[in-house]
């Protein structure tokens, strides 16, 4: 279950990282840096949750249907 602690990363990149990313420059992919950064955080969140999902034992085995 330790893998679930990875889920602490998304809040950190959004809410702490933003203090270091509040800038228009440099532009990345046509976006102001802050806009690129927050978009990258969204993608990062999905990647983290894919890792958590795949390694979390709660998602192993047959689904508990009813």
């Amino acid at each position: 279950m330790a893998i679930r602690w990875l889920a602490i990363l998304p809040p950190l990149v959004f809410l702490v990282g933003v203090f270091f990313a509040n800038s228009v420059t440099p532009y990345v992919m046509g976006l102001p840096f802050l806009w690129f950064y927050i978009s990258a955080c969204v993608v990062f969140t999905a990647l983290v949750m894919i890792v958590v999902y795949l390694l979390d034992p709660a998602n192993k085995g047959p689904e508990l249907q009813d």
Partner: peptide, 29 residues
């Protein structure tokens, strides 16, 4: 700039949902 909050909160809501919603669903069921 402040519009970025709209882009941000959903992602974090889903992270929380991963841990919270299965328990609520189970309890409701």
């Amino acid at each position: 700039g402040p519009t970025l909050y709209i882009l941000s909160y959903g992602s974090l809501a889903y992270v929380l949902a991963y841990f919270m919603l299965p328990r609520i669903w189970r309890y409701a069921k």
